[in-house]
């Protein structure tokens, strides 16, 4: 077989492989959306789930997912920002830094179920938080920190050193320069990273089943006092999220319309992740423009 023929065979094979992938992926997306769309309705998105009968919604789970997401971000963003700043602006190349980097790498590759188990051990049991939004938010914080730290570090590194020198030469400390010049300049990239990690948090379930719990007690959406037990804002209540809900009803759900609910919930999850992706692109683009143009 001469090299021209084998060249053509190889390239044809690559075309086949790439098209197969596109077909698999398109079918996957299509299936999620098409099978999920019929289930979607305002009622479905807002009403509470039913355990034994058909017609339940995902309202509480959806709220829980967003609340948990926001709480996780509130906890993890400042930590990731501090860590990212230290790594990019202060860390010297020594054994401590390489140890820290190794640790972050390990954390990012840990199975999320292990992170969840650790959260269970420390927050649910040891600290006595029980199955609660707070326990879940801490577990998701560990899950979120490595990637967020890395993306913040990269965003800071992309800001030219001239900007740092500009601040230092005015007699400002490095910290002030970083906080008030470098971070704002890196904001579009940082926000993009935050939104992308939000998508990851939104869909995470394994880290939550033993921390935020697998039940969604009824909420009183007129009571916004976080200290009341039925208040949606109460961080100490157990909170099944959308992703956990999908897992739960498929492993042990007994409602007759479990499949329709899962389809609908999956579609909501995927559409949300898609939304986060688009938002990340949009925000990055928009802010970048606003910062550079007159």
């Amino acid at each position: 077989m001469n090299s021209k023929v084998s060249n053509q065979i190889a390239i044809a094979t690559l075309y086949v492989i790439a098209s197969t992938i596109v077909v698999i992926l398109a079918a996957l997306l299509g299936y999620i959306i098409i099978s999920g769309l019929p289930a979607l309705s305002w009622h479905f998105l807002t009403s509470p789930a039913k355990a034994f009968t058909a017609g339940g919604g995902i309202g509480i789970q959806l709220f829980n997912s967003f609340y948990l997401l926001i709480l996780t971000m509130i906890i993890s963003f400042p930590i990731a920002l501090g860590a990212g700043i230290y790594l990019n602006e202060y860390a010297k190349q020594n054994w401590l830094t390489s140890l820290v980097r190794t640790a972050i790498e390990i954390l990012s590759s840990l199975p999320s179920v292990v992170v969840g188990l650790f959260g269970f051990l420390v927050f649910v049991v040891q600290f006595g938080f029980g199955f609660s939004i707070l326990s879940g938010a801490f577990a998701l914080t560990f899950f979120n920190l490595p990637l967020l730290t890395r993306s913040i570090e990269e965003a800071l590194a992309a800001v030219p050193d001239e900007q740092r020198e500009g601040g230092l030469a005015l007699g400002l400390s490095k910290w002030e320069t970083v906080l008030h010049i470098i971070v704002p300049a890196a904001l579009p990239t940082i926000l993009t990273g935050v939104i992308l990690s939000a998508g990851r948090i939104f869909g995470e379930a394994a880290a939550l089943i033993f921390t935020a719990g697998q039940s969604a007690p009824a909420l009183n959406f007129t009571d916004w006092n976080p200290f009341n037990i039925s208040s949606p804002l109460n961080p100490m209540r157990p909170a099944e999220t959308l992703a956990v809900h999908i897992w739960k009803i498929n492993s042990e759900g007994i409602m007759p319309d479990a499949k329709a609910i899962s389809s609908g919930a999956s579609a909501v999850l995927v559409i949300s992740v898609l939304g986060f992706n688009l938002l990340a692109r949009f925000v990055g683009h928009r802010l970048f423009k606003r910062l550079t143009a007159g």
Binding site: L28, G199, F202, G203, A206, S263, S266, L269
Partner: peptide, 10 residues
């Protein structure tokens, strides 16, 4: 970015 539970469900 697709959550793993969605893969499991499918």
């Amino acid at each position: 970015g697709i959550p793993s539970v969605v893969y499991g469900f499918i």
